[in-house]
Design a protein around this nucleic acid. Structure first.
Length: 271
DNA sequence: ACTGGCTCCTGAGGGC
DNA sequence: TGCCCTCAGGAGCCAG
């Protein structure tokens, strides 16, 4: 489900509301998520203060006092919401974090999400340690991108979605960035010129920034924390538009598969 | 060192 | 109405 713009939208909404709040309780209703929720979490967390809420790729990091943190990933169908006290549990609500002023609940029908904890610098957690640079930060330089891609034989779309190369670009925005760049999703990395790679890097940034400005996209499961839908899906140029006319040239958008993921592209505009 | 394929899970939607 | 099939925004893990 959520890609970087959606996770960042959630982070921005929650961060000011959770900062400096002390955890009253963490209630786990279903520990069988992507990885089992550690049994000690519920005992461990009460009394700890949340210092701030950060993001790395599609991971949310609740930084706690005392050198601890909570790591949350929403997977495909995970959704965080602020629940009123006493609200009955909805189906597939697997845990809640109770704070003095609010309760945060996670709902996730497919259970691909995760809730883990760690101590020390979050960047050293095994799931974060190998992540590539943030696409919207300076570390994602043109030199790095070109040098990383130019000798790889995998499809450029697969490489763009590889979080070890660049963190947080998922299926929707990879499709959109490739269309804006005029690059065929299945073109091997080593068959793209530096100039075309630089264009793709710039288009990746701009599509993520535009989505962020719209509060993210809405497809099936994603909602903002307050329940409002994101607005970006109205401006998809290829994603989900198989058979519809390309907004650039009018020829029908084609759907295919790259790896195990759905790929949408214009056979005329993308080479 | 890379690459591609498989896997976890539930729900929605289409065809018959 | 029901059954069966395919597909869904992620990404770790595995064999080759």
């Amino acid at each position: 489900m959520p890609e970087l713009p959606e996770v960042e939208t959630i982070r921005r909404a929650l961060a000011p509301r959770v900062a400096n709040q002390t955890i009253l309780a963490l209630d786990v209703f279903e520990p069988r998520l992507r990885f089992p929720v550690p049994e000690t979490l519920g005992r461990d967390l009460p009394g700890r203060t949340i210092q701030n809420l950060e993001r790395r790729g599609k991971y949310l990091v609740f930084v706690l006092a005392g050198d601890r943190y909570l790591l949350v990933h929403l997977g495909m169908s995970g959704r965080l919401s602020v629940a009123a006290p006493q609200t009955p549990l909805l189906p597939h609500e697997h845990w809640q974090l109770r704070l003095p002023d609010m309760t945060i609940r996670l709902r996730d029908p497919r259970r691909f999400s995760l809730l883990l904890t760690g101590s020390g610098p979050p960047a050293t957690h095994p799931l974060l340690r190998l992540l590539g640079p943030e696409p919207l930060e300076d570390a994602f330089t043109g030199t790095y991108w070109i040098e990383t891609i130019r000798h790889r034989k995998a499809a450029i779309k697969t490489l763009l979605m590889d979080s070890r190369i660049v963190a947080g670009v998922g299926n929707i925005y990879a499709n959109e960035a490739l269309h804006r760049s005029g690059i065929h999703p299945n073109r091997p990395g080593d068959r793209l010129s530096p100039a075309r790679l630089l264009r793709l890097q710039a288009m990746t940034r701009s599509v993520l920034l535009e989505a962020l400005a719209s509060g993210g996209s809405t497809l099936r499961d994603y909602r903002r924390v307050d329940g409002a839908p994101g607005e970006f899906s109205t401006v998809f140029r290829v994603y989900g538009r198989a058979g519809e006319p390309c907004l650039t040239c009018g020829r029908p958008i084609r759907r295919t598969r790259t790896g195990q993921r759905s790929t949408f592209y214009c056979p005329s505009c993308q080479k």
